[in-house]
Design a protein around this nucleic acid. Sequence first.
DNA 1: AAGACGAAAGTGGTTGA
DNA 2: TCAACAACTTTCGTCTT
Length: 311
Amino acid sequence: MSTDTYVKKCPECGGINLFWNKDKGEIVCRDCGLVVEEKMVDFNQEWREFDSTDAEKRRRTGAPMTYTQYDQGLGTEIGRKADLYGLDSRDKSKFFRLRKWQYRISTAIERNLKLALAELKRVSSYLKLPKSVEEESARIYTLAVQRGLVRGRSMESVVAGALYAACRRHEVPRTLDEISESSGIEKKEVGRTYRFITRELGISIMPSNPADYIPRFASALKLSPETQSKSIEIIEAAQDKELTSGRGPTGIAAAGLYVAALINGEKRTQREVADVAGVTEVTIRNRYKELLDKLDLEKEIKKNKKKKKED
DNA sequence: AAGACGAAAGTGGTTGA
DNA sequence: TCAACAACTTTCGTCTT
């Protein structure tokens, strides 16, 4: 955290031309333009795991590259690497030549990984994601790079997709909106990349459970734990009656929370809940109506109203 | 006056021919 | 590849508290 221990070398290009902009509180590499954040110091630990094989090599590679050149160059190289697998059994000399290629570009992959993992770390800490999710998404991203799935996509969008996938797998779902906002990638792009990489990597994901959203939404709305568990009850009941399939999980979570708050006399407006959950009031209303219809919750709401009047 | 409700039209994504 | 389709949003007018 403290700035006197800040990095001496650029994590991307290894250059030593780091410029500390005290006003903005950021450190910028003059060679490649990378903005090195203060938390950099922490990152080093993380990276070591990924770098161990040829960490020494990278240190001295100071070739100045712009961000975009670097990225584009990498994209095509990874493509070649993918081709290699089709050829190797037939032509041995070609195989060895390509092997050399692969070896040469592996440092490029390493560099891309460093950059990507810095981005990943940034977004992840912005979203306050647990370590386990961060590591999972790093793993997913690494796999994606190795399979050449980054080609034709921006590194950032793949990072965002990997994060979203990791969140889903660990059942700490963030909405696409949140990922989108914190990564600066368009929502539909995040979704597309997410679908692509999970399909290509054969990652199976359970459809996300509305109940997983409850704790976060509830705390954002400052609702009591009782209301939380009530809403989870409601959602589970709704799942039994198959009111949840095909519906957006956030909408269901929002409606469940809204009803639960109503029942426990902690009423929030539809708008408040809608904002937190990232859906519209209309969606809440639709789900809410279904819940009332099928789960006869009206009694409970009335009961609560009576209680209030008595007080 | 603010919140809740619902109708109608529009949007983006999925699916199936 | 295209059109039908379901879920969700946007917008707006009306009713309720």
